[in-house]
Design a protein around this nucleic acid. Structure first.
Length: 410
DNA sequence: TCTGGGGTCCTAGGACCC
DNA sequence: TCTGGGGTCCTAGGACCC
């Protein structure tokens, strides 16, 4: 971030978004699939089979059974209205012949590191926004203001392509909010520049939902007020927005509609929570499936402890998350006297949390979370870190049997 | 054939302290 | 004792994002 003395009068912020990232990485591995409808998602049981003659046989969407959703679809697949978030079973009805590949996060993380490193060599002030997108503050780069960022934008795209073989889409505007919208304008392989005076012509006609931060709920409420486009929102009375959406969100809606956003590009941040969750193959009941649920919870706690250890954090607030068969979500958490990264301590706390939940309904998902994180290195008394490195084993004897999922409480 | 997994931030009430 | 105000921590839920 800048000190005020260095803050350039004008900002130029880029948003860079990888095109159909997971799917594009898969196409690097399986170039024979290029141009075909391919979707990524589901479990691990549908990896391509290599036949005796060396050819590959891919799983087809029509054979999928389960509760997975599409993580990413190639542009060819999107032609069938098959998109991220869609259940794979539903997708199969739309595009039965589409190829189905399992997610491989290790591979995507590898390409994520590659493209981010390539970007940093061109422009070092980068904010991570997940595995496949970043913001970049171009303001201080030599000559960037001469052409509104066009040359740098091209250089970024070339650097990413050279480093990964993948295309991306870039928006360059005075702030993050506008850049995020603009990177979508010309996807895939796009480059869009926009200045503040173009907001009425190019931003206001868009649906309000296109603003990053206006989701399905807010968008529905706006629609009910007769506000469909960003222009409608910009024209809405600020007082009305304050009345309907509260001080903070209401004021933000007004600012966002006018394309105003002063948020800095933040290059460093610490995680606030680390969690693990899993959706079951079928809904489970606290009593009838007690053993299975207990085993799953044990496993999640061990995985979470492993994540904490690997990343070098300990948590002081341990929480659970349940999703019932009706999709209702319940969370409970418990703040401990000291930070922990120990699977058994996490498991014990999770067990305490579970006792406070009505477990009459069947469960669909179970999760465990560690919050109030501290870096291991920053913990004053190492003794507060319960057990040193966590056993990577599922459950030591006498541990898996902790009483859990007892009788449902009315 | 309904709807994954990993996050962030905000709100709001109650406890507790000064 | 009463009233009251501010601040922080804890907990639960919800919206939103990738």
């Amino acid at each position: 971030m800048y000190s005020s003395a260095q803050t350039p009068a004008r900002r130029l912020i880029a948003h860079l978004d990888m095109d159909a990232f997971y799917a594009s990485v898969e196409l690097l591995r399986y170039p024979d699939l290029r141009g075909q409808a391919v979707v990524i998602g589901g479990g691990r049981d549908h990896a391509p089979q290599v036949l005796a003659d060396g050819t590959r046989r891919y799983a087809r969407l029509r054979h999928y059974v389960g509760r997975g959703v599409i993580t990413t679809a190639t542009y060819a697949a999107r032609a069938f209205a098959v998109n991220s978030g869609l259940g794979l079973m539903k997708a199969a009805a739309l595009a039965p012949d589409a190829v189905l590949l399992p997610v491989d996060f290790d591979e995507y993380r590898k390409y994520s590191r590659l493209f981010k490193a390539a970007v940093r060599r061109v422009a070092p002030v980068v904010e991570d926004r997940g595995i496949d997108e970043i913001y970049i503050d171009l303001s201080a780069l030599p000559g960037v203001h001469d052409d509104g960022g066009l040359a740098i934008g091209r250089a970024l795209k070339e650097a990413v392509l050279a480093a990964t073989g993948l295309t991306c889409s870039v928006g360059i505007t005075p702030n993050k909010l506008l850049s995020k919208m603009c990177s979508e304008f010309d996807k895939p392989d796009g480059l869009t520049l926009l200045t503040a005076d173009e907001i009425p012509a190019r931003i206001w006609p868009l649906p309000a939902r296109k603003i990053n931060g206006i989701g399905p709920k807010a968008s529905d409420r706006l629609a009910a007020m007769g506000i469909a486009t960003i222009g409608d929102l910009a024209a809405a009375s600020p007082q009305r927005l304050l009345d309907d959406f509260g001080k903070s969100y209401g004021a933000w809606l007004h600012e966002a509609a006018h394309g105003r956003d002063e948020r800095p590009v933040v290059t460093e941040s610490e995680p606030k929570s680390i969690s693990r969750e899993t959706t079951f193959d079928r809904d489970l009941h606290a009593v009838r499936d007690k053993a299975r649920l207990t085993g799953l919870l044990d496993g999640l706690c061990v995985e979470l402890a492993g994540d904490l250890a690997r990343k070098g954090y300990a948590g002081r607030t341990i929480g659970i998350k349940l999703r019932f068969d009706d999709f209702r979500i319940v969370t409970r958490d418990l703040t401990l006297p000291a930070h922990t990264m120990d699977a058994r301590s996490i498991r014990r706390a999770a067990g305490e949390c579970l006792k406070r939940v009505d477990l009459t309904r069947r469960l669909r998902l179970l999760g465990v979370r560690a919050g109030a994180l501290a870096r291991l290195a920053d913990l004053v008394a190492p003794a507060t870190v319960a057990e040193p490195p966590v056993a990577a084993e599922p459950a030591p004897p006498g541990y898996a049997g902790l009483p859990l999922f007892d009788t449902p409480r009315p």
